[in-house]
Design a protein around this nucleic acid. Structure first.
Length: 274
DNA sequence: AACGCGCCCTGTCCGC
DNA sequence: TGCGGACAGGGCGCGT
């Protein structure tokens, strides 16, 4: 999906474009994006008349806070997009799954070609539980070198896979996991618990750095991602290893390799990453 | 109980 | 031009 920087960009865009609007009606065209026990009928009943107080993010999820203290949580899967109907890009959407009609005559569109995305609605109590299931925010103060090192110690899974587990650290996906491991000089196949405190510290810094830079660039568009106005992100040219199989390493000119681990690509420089 | 695997679904690209 | 296979920012449910 959209990983943390993409979700952050979308949330910021929607905070400007739809915060303060009231939801008048909901139309569901593909109910399979609704997380159980949600149905089209229930979603409409619970959202009708609600005002969107604020749009934020938790991990890779875009979160709309409503005026009755419920939260509409959107996980964008691989191809999910949230775009206001007034945006010029809205006309090109081919897979609108849910349309939220707003009180200004416009609508917020949820488009998702593959329908891997999920929409959930949480009251305050359910949100507390869901929030607690998600791991540390990598850009928060709590994400210290010691905290990351401690967590890594508890697992023997390959560190690339470990980073994708949203219960440990929330918001990192395959692109930024690979990029951060390259920047930290750590081989992605290493067991999580094998990282030294120094390596964990470098990984922590690399994660914050690459996620921060990607937010500044409004996310990475590898193929499908679009921001909250339907536009591609600008970070793809800054990727150092992801998608660069066969190209020379930016540091040492060794060929960047692609390896497949648990059905997902890893990109690495075999010389720079140990 | 942690971990890996298969699967969900559609679009695109590449080789033949 | 058509067709099959590989691949894609994710995550759930299952078995071991």
């Amino acid at each position: 999906m959209p990983e943390l920087p993409e979700a952050e960009t979308i949330a910021r865009d929607l905070q400007r474009s739809v915060a303060g609007r009231r939801i008048e009606a909901v139309r569901v065209r593909h109910a399979d994006v609704l997380g159980p026990p949600l149905t089209a009928r229930r979603l409409g009943a619970r959202l009708r008349g609600r005002r969107i107080e604020a749009v934020g993010r938790r991990g890779k999820n875009v979160v709309l806070l409503l005026d009755d203290d419920t939260r509409l949580m959107v996980n964008l899967g691989m191809t999910g997009r949230l775009v206001p109907s007034r945006s010029p890009a809205a006309a090109e959407l081919r897979h609108v799954a849910v349309r939220f009609r707003l009180d200004d005559g416009e609508a917020l569109l949820y488009d998702d070609a593959r329908r891997f995305g999920r929409i959930d609605l949480h009251d305050a109590e359910a949100w507390r539980r869901r929030d607690a299931e998600l791991g540390l925010e990598p850009l928060s103060d709590a994400f210290t070198p010691a905290a990351l090192h401690d967590l890594l110690q508890r697992s023997r899974t390959p560190v690339r896979n470990w980073l994708l587990d949203q219960r440990k650290v929330a918001g990192v996906g395959n692109i930024y996991a690979n990029e951060a491991l390259f920047r930290a000089g750590v081989a992605p196949g290493r067991s999580a618990r094998s990282l030294t405190a120094a390596e964990a510290g470098r990984l922590r810094d690399a994660l914050r750095e690459v996620l921060g830079e990607a937010i500044t660039a409004r996310g990475t568009t590898f193929s499908d991602y679009r921001d909250g106005a339907g536009e591609p992100g600008g970070f793809a040219i800054a990727l150092r290893v992801y998608g660069r199989e066969g190209e020379p390493c930016v540091l040492c000119r060794t060929e960047v390799r692609r390896e497949v681990l648990t059905n997902r690509s890893m990109f690495l420089c075999p010389a720079c990453q140990r």
